[in-house]
Nucleic acid binder design. Structure first.
Lengths: 215, 215
DNA sequence: TAGATTGTTAATCGATTAACAATC
DNA sequence: TAGATTGTTAATCGATTAACAATC
């Protein structure tokens, strides 16, 4: 997909939502849908939906609307979940283990190849079928196994060094659960899950409900 | 805090970031900081920082800047983490248990009073010190124990009904990990942690790095 | 007082919404 | 063909950035 401009983060963040609703709609056996009907379901405006989709191509048909399955397939391809990714989890703590056990990621094409930890009692063991290796072998493993995604679930203090090692070894994307803004080169992308920040947003709105707009 | 207008979500989402950096700066023993220095550290513009803060009050002083500890305290108060919250976790699965074990939330004032599940083998047991109760007693517990926050970690299909029960019982905020957009009345706020959506954002940018702008 | 830096207004930029011609 | 609905341009709205007077 060649484009002359940059698609904004706002648009990208709506793509998973479209994908989710289109899956539900397809499951109901609905074949076609208009931007207006999608608007009714998602709460977004019909105009915004058409604008968003047209960043990536003209998937609809005048007078008809969009074919549900086809549009869902297109979005799947745009998001990039029509293929598999090799991933490893860094940190075999609470969150790391929860993500390792969350089997749905596997079905979506995210293959958790290993976990890495510094704790000697964990290293060498298996957790729910996923091997736990020594952190010092991280770079080597990424390199050899073509790992594209690392999932960082270690404390903030350890995250940047791990990121540096992984990037050096060729990782393309970092799903970062550590409460820190990682410094990465241009060709590496970071998606943060800052749970503390999310919880703070919740408390702000609990105390200031008049500022809240449902999303 | 009385205001004539609504503070935008963009501003609110930056408050935890200010709070995080101010904590780091205070830990270094730094007493005062200018918006320009904060800009250098956070990557936000000095102008934006001053605009953001002035939504809530004039915390700085011309010719001086901001007192680090004082500003941090103000943001703590604005976010609403200067007090405790009673919370319960719904769903004693992987994510629910990981959150229950994550002791840092307790230090931040989020008191996990119980977990709720429908699985009879789990009900009546303790997990890492947190009791697991039967889902059908959720409303009663919320009511009696003044629970303000519920943390939903059940599958999408069960989430709306749980939300309805909890809201009926008086819950104010929902931290929602289920991949669904909950319908709630005006006086209840929802903060979503949609892990799938987050992961999809990552894969989009892995495949389209030229659209990526570090955040 | 002179210098520094805020608080705040004005200008710019970008995203959303509205409108409608194109077309199935 | 007539009706429906997209794709796309134009208008509006809101957020960010720039500028500078106020003031410590």
């Amino acid at each position: 997909m060649k484009r002359e401009y940059r698609v904004s983060i706002a648009v990208i963040k709506r793509l998973p939502k479209y994908y989710r609703y289109l899956g539900m709609i397809a499951d109901k056996g609905i074949i076609r849908i208009s931007s207006q009907e999608l608007s009714n379901i998602t709460g977004l405006t019909a105009s915004q939906i058409r604008q968003d989709l047209n960043h990536f191509g003209g998937f609809g048909q005048q007078g008809y609307g969009y074919n549900v399955e086809e549009l869902r397939g297109e979005i799947e391809r745009i998001i990039g979940i029509n293929k598999d990714y090799n991933a490893v989890i860094i940190g075999a703590g609470n969150i790391g283990r929860a993500l390792a056990q969350y089997k749905k990621f596997d079905g979506l094409g995210f293959k958790i190849r290993a976990m890495f930890d510094t704790d000697e009692r964990k290293v060498g063991t298996d957790f729910d079928g996923t091997p736990i290796y020594d952190m010092k072998n991280l770079g080597e493993f990424i390199n050899k196994e073509n790992v594209e995604i690392i999932i960082i679930t270690v404390p903030a203090g350890a995250a940047q060094e791990i990121a540096d090692t992984a990037i050096e070894a060729g990782v393309k994307g970092i799903w970062n659960f550590a409460p820190i803004d990682l410094k990465v080169p241009d060709n590496v992308v970071v998606e943060n899950v800052h749970l503390n920040d999310s919880l703070f947003t919740l408390t702000y709105y609990i105390n200031n409900p008049s500022d809240y707009i449902p999303r």
